[in-house]
Structure formats: C-alpha cells, structure tokens
Design a protein around this nucleic acid. Structure first.
Lengths: 346, 346
DNA sequence: ATGAAAGCGCTAACAA
DNA sequence: TTGTTAGCGCTTTCAT
C-alpha cells in the first residue's frame, strides 16, 4: 500500500501538503493541489485510518454491542445505525455478546480498538459488573439502549414497554379476554420485566387476579416461544397469549398450528417489537411497535454528539409504542370488536 | 487511557519489558513479570490495537461485506463467522452494501482500516469493477462467498445450487407436478442464475417445455416474493412454485394465504437456504439447505490462512445441498408421495 | 534479563 | 503557500 510519503515524493511536495489536500484545510495552491490529487489517483492511495487514529486520537468508529445478529429486531437496528453512522462519517464495529454474557470482554475489545463511542444494547446478564462499567463510561461516550441509564452518567434510548403492553392488555380485556397468558423473560431483565408489569397492572386495574399458571418464562427465541406456549397451554387454557417479543410470538403461533388450535379463532396471540416479518407470518401478528428507526437515529446521533462534544449533556430518550392490530388477535365481544376497529389497524 | 509508558513507569522497567510481558516472548524475570502484571492490573491497561497495528502491520481484523443484515441467511452467516474469527483472535468488521451496490467504496473503507483480509459475499451489482477488484486481491487476502472466483486469484466458498434445485424440481416432477413456477433474481446474479439453470435442466430432461409465464423476477426480500407470487399467479396457474431464496418463498406463502389458496393443498411452495425460520412458518417450508456453518467456518479459516501464510494456495470449496421436505410441498400422485416419503424429512 | 532507540503513517505546531 | 519537526503507542532489532 502506498503511503503519504510516496504521494509526496511523486507530487514533489512535502507530506504536510499532501495531508492538507487530503483534509482540505488551510490554503493550498491550485496547481499544487492538482499535482497531489493526480499522484493520489495514480498510486491508488488511501490514507491509513490507523495512522490517522494514532495521531488524532479519534478513529471515527463506534462500537455496537448487541446480543446476536439472529434476531430481526437487532438486524433492523444495525441496519439503521450503520446508515446513520456512515452518513456522519463513522464506521460501526459490532460485537455480539450472546456467547459471553459478561460483556466486559467485548467492551475491552472495542476500547482497545480505540472506538470513539459505544452503543450498548443491554441484555440480561450483560455488564453486570457495574463497577467496571461506571469506570468506563467516564472515559468513553456511551449510549445505553433498551434500558434506563439507572444512575450511570450516560445517555439512554428505550421504549415505554410498560405502557405499550398495558394498553394492549386493556384492549384485550375490554374485548372480552379474561384469561390472558404471558410469555416473558427473566425478571432480572428490566426490559422484559417492565413489559410484564404493564400486563400485571392492566389486569389488576380491571380486577383480574394474577394467575401464576398463566405466566411462563422463555428466552427471546422462536423455539423458546414455541416451547413456552406448549407449557402454558398444558397447565391452563387462556383465550389470549401475549409475549414480550415477536420471535416468541411466532414460535407460539407455530405451537398452536401444530396442535390444531386456530389463531385467532381459538386463541389470540401478540408480540412486541413489530419486526418486519410480523406482517408476513400467517396469521399476521398483532404486536406492540417500537419506533425503531427513530430509536436507532437517536442513539447514533447521541453517541456521536458525545464524541464531538464531550461535555454535552447526557439525556434520556423514552419513546412511546403503538399497537398494531393484525390477524392474530380477535375480540370476543361486540364492545371489544368496536374498540378494536377504532384502533390503528392494517 | 493508560499507555505502555505508564505501566513501565509504575513497574519501574522499560517499555520493552512491558511489551515482552504482554506478548509473552523472550525470558522475563519472574519477579519483574509480576511487577509488570500488577501495574497492568492496577492501571486497567489494555494495549492499543491501533499502535500495535501500526507497528506490526497486522490488525487482526477481517472485513466482511454482505448485502444486508436484514436477511436471516446473512445473519446466520455473520453469527458463525464472528464465532470462528474470534476463536482465532480476529475481529470481524462488517459493511453492508445494500445501499451502495458498487461496493468498491466499502472495500476501500475496509482497506483503509488495514483489515488483514476480506470475506466478500458477492451480490448482483456489487464489485462489477473487476479491474479494481483484480488489483486489490493481489494486495489483500480475499475469500469470495456464494460465487466461483471466476478467474480471480482468490479462494471461494459456495454451494452447488444448480444441483440442489435440479434435484428438488425432479422430485416435484416425479411427484406429478408439470406446471412449476420459478421466482428468481436477475440473470446477472450468477447465484440465482445457477439455481435457475437447475430448474430449467430438470424440466428439459423430463421433456417439459419452459414456459416464460412461469418465470418471474424479484429481489431476495419477503415483500418481493409476495409481489412476485401475485404476478405469477395472475398470468398462469402452476401447481408448484420454487424460489431461489427462503424469504421470497415466505412472501409467496403470504400471498397464497391472502388469496385463500391453500398451501400445499392447492399449490406447493419451496425456498432455498433453510434459514432458521423456515421450519417455523406456517406451513413450514420445504427448502434446499446449504451447510451454512461449514461454509462460514471454511471461509473464515481460509481467509485467516491466507493472512498468516500469504503464499498458501487459493482453493475453491463447493458444497452440496440437501433438500429438506416440510409441509409446504406435496406430491400429486402415489409415486411422488412414495418417493417423497423416502427422502430426508422433518 | 533488560534497555535504548528507531520507526510504522499520519497530523499539527511552528517556522519560513 | 509550503516545509520542518515532533510525536501518537507500540514492537523490535541491537546493545549491554
């Protein structure tokens, strides 16, 4: 690979001048500039990001920590983050934490690479080492997604899952459902837990007793959802099942199909996230949608802002959800049907 | 961030010694080593990959070029590649090319970052600039996935899609299907085209005339598949539809559902890839499976091999597919049913 | 067993 | 408008 020295030699100027042309600052004579440009062209020269990073102490990379690529929600998120980061001249470097839930290992990997900032999609088990985390966030701009910052001096971007699920469950109750099953994730995962609390409070406010047999745990996977639905239906007979993730809901659809339980005739099913395939599965999935594009944009913009203005105020961004009613749910009475019809639907 | 100088100062040794401890070469006195380790620990020191990369001209990163994250096949691939790369001490850096099909822009981005090697998932439109590509592959280890190297001095990893589709179509024909629709991608995309040729030859060898109304084009997306199915069924009435990608097949399932065409009773549908959700969709999808884990492993191993042994011979790895029969296809006669039953099934 | 010093490719004071 | 020079943090001869 050609270096700046080669270019300088070829153009008959100093490396400084080449650098000036490259970075387009301070006046450079037109003819000199042209000579340099030509040399760059001919040599197929591209400045080394490594050397630039060493010198400027800025790499124009941001690290992204997600649990896995194998989840439409994160795929979608990455898609938008990459788009926005690129537009701002940054390159995202992604680490998945699925296999090493500790996470601090990955943060180190990113830090060693001198990433300028990190977007952390929290997850159960990850970064439980708060002492470590609270030290790191002082040195590197951080944005936490999916969870509140919880005292850490970082910006955070997440959704009001509590209200989303609560609204959905209220609609189901008003639609005549009383026995509503819940497939959730571990209580330690506050994202899942908040969604669960929305479910609990909706029931409570409608005077419905919480039935432990209607609550089962699972991971966020399709297989997990399928298996959880089987457990749920073995021990109780809900008229509706809600889940804290679309993948699990899709798994539940599959379980019902295999056991000749018609959705939504025999049972209503809903998810959370509104991943792209939610509208394609059969039947299409009622779900609580997060404004993912906006969230990605906010997180990216925010982390870059902190990089470029270290003293910028840390902020918390909480987005509201919207319920998307599709084929997988139905209301059991006139009232519910009527209310359902009034809602956003497709 | 603490530097090696800070560590050296704290431990009362030279930076050379610290480096020796870090890289674990040449004898270092036990007590000295311990002092250094302590200093490293106390300072929370991690060597800068940037500085290491500058000095050694090796960054232990590999660049991955894929069209998009929003496709289960690539998500799956990334998952395995990351796993294998990490195990070998390399960090993958992913660029998606969806929005800039030219691709060379992205290769430059990666090259500037001094990636040690690149895994390129070819795609229609990407890297049509062969002159550029043929220059680059001489400087940086490359592995091309999904396509043959086609004269370029690089290793390649792909599947015999021709044979996979041919076998599937033959089974369908023997199962009584005569009018078989095909949803493919552009002819310029050799991956899609090879799969198409398998279809064409299977028909030809069974004396079935190729009917242009049975062949429609689409992108690799779910929406595209849905829309393509609608076009296909508007102009002809196949008893089966095969596609060159699972996403498109899932879209086709959706189209049929919306138009009360029962799968597989009224029409059989199949995909290609065997993405994880193929077994979950309703009905579950018959598809041509690629040995993705093995392919990811091979590509990763191969690119690292070229990095570490520049003179290593370039190789071509062609994998065979296997047909996974699921619920979305049926045979129209005894013969087909019998043959179908004998096949790998789940 | 340890250290001094050069240099990887670039940028930014400072000088001219 | 252009060039000289120092130095970012590390590794690696070459001495000692």
């Amino acid at each position: 690979m050609a270096t700046i020295i080669d270019v300088a030699a070829k153009a008959g100027v100093s490396t400084t001048t080449v650098s000036r042309v490259l970075n387009d600052y301070s006046p450079v004579n037109r003819t000199t500039r042209n000579r340099v440009m030509e040399a760059i062209e001919e040599l197929g020269y591209h400045p080394s990001s490594l050397a630039q990073g060493m010198r400027t102490q800025r790499t124009r990379t941001i690290g992204i920590l997600i649990p896995t690529y194998r989840n439409y929600w994160y795929a979608e998120l990455l898609n938008f983050i990459e788009q926005d980061a690129r537009a701002a001249g940054y390159l995202p470097i992604v680490c998945t934490t699925e296999r090493e839930p500790g996470g601090s290992e990955h943060v180190n990997t990113l830090l060693r690479r001198q990433v300028d900032g990190i977007i952390l999609c929290w997850y159960h088990g990850i970064m439980t080492d708060r002492k470590y985390l609270s030290k790191i966030v002082r040195e590197t701009p951080f944005v936490i997604m999916d969870q509140p910052a919880d005292g850490l001096p970082v910006s955070s971007v997440y959704t009001n899952g509590y209200q989303g699920v609560k609204t959905l469950v209220e609609a189901l109750i008003e639609g005549g459902h009383r026995k509503i099953g819940m497939i959730k994730y571990l209580a330690e995962n506050s994202t899942s837990e908040n969604r669960f609390l929305g479910y609990r409070d909706a029931l409570r406010e409608h005077g419905i007793q919480l039935d432990p047999r209607l609550i089962v745990h699972s991971d966020y996977s399709t297989e997990g959802g399928q298996e959880a639905a089987s457990r749920l239906l073995a021990s109780s007979s809900p008229t509706a099942i809600i889940t804290v993730g679309d993948d699990m809901a899709i798994g539940a659809l599959r379980h019902c199909y295999e056991h000749h339980i018609k959705v939504p005739r025999d049972i209503s099913i809903s998810g959370f996230d509104d991943i792209p395939i939610a509208r394609t599965v059969i039947p299409s999935l009622t779900t609580v949608a997060q404004p993912i594009k906006l969230m990605a944009e906010t997180a990216t913009r925010q982390v870059i802002r902190h990089v470029e203005h270290p003293s910028a105020r840390r902020q918390e961004f909480v987005f509201e959800t919207s319920i998307v009613y599709r084929e997988s749910t139905r209301f059991l009475n006139e009232n519910g049907t009527a209310r359902g019809r009034k809602r956003k639907k497709e």
